[in-house]
Design a protein around this nucleic acid. Sequence first.
RNA 1: GCGCCCGUAGCUCAGCCGGAUAGAGCAUCAGCCUUCUAAGCUGAGGGUCAGUGGUUCGAAUCCACUCGGGCGUACCA
Length: 559
Amino acid sequence: MREYIRHRLSESLQKCNFKVDEITIEKPKNPKFGDYTTNAALMIANRAGLKPREAAEKIIENLNYDIKLIDKIEIAGHGFINFYISDSYYFWVLNEILKKKEKYGLSEINKGKRANVEWVSANPTKPLHAGHGRHICLGKSISNLLEWSGYKVIREYYYNDAGNQMKVLAESVYARYMQIMEPGFPFPENGYHGNYITEIAKIIYEKEKEKYRNNYNESYFKSEAENYNFKSIKNTLEKLGIRHDVFFNESDLYKNGNIENVLKEFKKRNLSYISDDAVWLKIDESGERDKVIVKSSGEPTYRLPDIAYHIEKIKKGYDLIVDIFGSDHLDTYKDVLHGAAALGYDIKNIRVIIHQMVTFKVKKESNGMNEEVKHTTKMSGRSGKTYLLDDLIDEIGADATQFFFIMRSAPAHLVFDIDLAKEHSEKNPVYYLQYAHARICSIIRNAKDNFKTEYEKFLNPENIKPDEHLKTKEEIDLIRIISDFPEVILNAANEYEPHILISYLNQVAEKYHIFYHNHRVLNNEEINLSVSRLLLCFAVKQVLKNGFDALGISAPESM
RNA sequence: GCGCCCGUAGCUCAGCCGGAUAGAGCAUCAGCCUUCUAAGCUGAGGGUCAGUGGUUCGAAUCCACUCGGGCGUACCA
C-alpha cells in the first residue's frame, strides 16, 4: 500500500514538474490524520515558490488513484497530505492472511540470497554465563528475522579450539586432578577457577584413577575438558532451541595453511613488520593503532586467525555476512575487517552488530528489608559463583529468557529484571503476548466442541463475507493492525532489531484483548457474524504465531 | 587522553535517515468477572526529552560544545 501511494505520488509530482529527491510516506501517530501521510508538499513548497497548501492542492489535482483502495485524500496542517485507506482494502488483506497462513509476512525481497550469521562462538573453556544470554538470544532472533526477509540463513559457530587458552584449561584440570591425590598440588597462576574444572577432574579420576598422577598428558586433559565444556554449551543452546548448521574449527585454519598464507600476504604487500620479535599489522599511518598478530613467542594472537576466518567466509560468496559482538569486542572487529580489506577482499557484505552489556537486577529479601542487588555482566560476586545461563533459563523459562534479552534495542544498555521475568502474572510482558494467542486457541476449541455449525463454516468459509459482518471499531482496528505485519517484520529484519517486532506484536495483542473484551465471538443467534469473527481471530492468531516464530518464543495453545 | 554507545515519566525503555497533542510496561490511585481464559479491560495522576548554542517553515530527532554513565583502548579471547 505504501508503495502504491509512493508510485501514484511520484507520477503526480512529475506531472506538476516538482522535483524532490526523496518523498517520505509514513503512518501518522494520530489516527485522525489518516492511514498514511506525506510531507511532499512541505518539501517542495520552498523550491517551487508556492505555499505548502497550494503545492499540496496541485499534487492532489494531478493524483491518479483507485477509489476502491483510497477513500479520501485531505490536506491538513501546514500542508500534509493525508490518505484514508478504504476498509475493502483491509478485508482483502484479511483474506490474504487466511490464504497464506504460516507464510504470511514472508518476504521475497531476498529470495535466492544466502546469509551467514555467526554468533555464540564461545570458547570451550567454560560454561555459558547469564551475560552471554543477550548475545545468544539476539543472534537467534536476528537469524530468524533474516529468514523471514527471504534469506537462506546459515547459522555458524566459530569454534575456537586453538591457542593458549586451551593449554591453560588443560593445566587447570590437571592441577585439580592432582589435588584429589595431593591436596597441596599447585594451581596455575592464570588458571580457570570455576567449579566445573573440579567436576571434570573428578570425572577423569573416576575413569582413569591414578594413571596420570605426575604424568601430565596435555592432549588428553585438553580433549576431556573441551568435550565436557562444549557439551555443556550445546546443552544450554538446545534449551533455547538454537542449532547451528556449521561449526567452523579454528584449528582447521592452521592445518590447511590459511594462517600462514595470510601472514605471507601481509608481508608481501608490506602491510606487516617485525618489531621486538613480534609481527605487527599496520593499521594506519601514525602506527599508534598497529596491532600484534604474531607474538614474540611465535604464537599468533586471536586477530590473525580471525582475519583468516573472515576471508574464508568472504570467499564462500555469501550475499550477507553477519557478525554479532558484545561491545567488549568493539576494537577487534575493526582490525579484522581492516586486515581483510587490506588484502583486497570485499567487506561490503559484512554487517557487524554490536550490542551493549547487560546488568541483572534482583531484589533480595534480607532481614525483612528489600535490598536491591545489581550484578554486572560477569555475575561473579564475592561468592566466586558465576550465574550460569543454564540456571537463568531453568529459573524463568526459555521464552522469558529469549524475550527479555531481545526486548531492548541492541545498542542500548539492558537492565534485566529477573524478578519481573520470573513473575507468572499480568506484570510479565511475555505473557501479555502469549495470552492473546492462548485465548484465541481457547475460542477455537470452544467452537469445535460447542458450536458445530459455526466451526464447519469456519473451516469452509466460501460463502462468508467478513466485510459484511465486521463493522465495529475494535474489529476494524484489529484488521488494520495485522495488515501491517509484513512491513513491520521486514523492517525489523532490515534493522537487525527484534525489538521492533516486539512492540508491534504488543499492539496486536492489545487490540485483540480490547476486541475480546467488547465482543463475544461465538453466538448461536448470529452465525455468520460468529464465523466472521472466528476468521478474524484465526488471522490474528496467525500473525502472533508468525511473529513469535521470528522472535524465537513459543505460541502456547493454553496457559 | 582517544574511539564506540547511552542520557526521554518514580523505575526499565520505545520514538531518533527532521513533521501535527512525546508513547509503552512496571510502580501509584480508582473502577470492571452468573457470558468463549481477569496472565484481561476501563480511567486518573506523572515530562525543562541531561544542559547550552546552532541549522529551518518545523528539532526528542541533525550539527557543535559541556556535563553525567557504560564498554573498549593487551605480545588475553
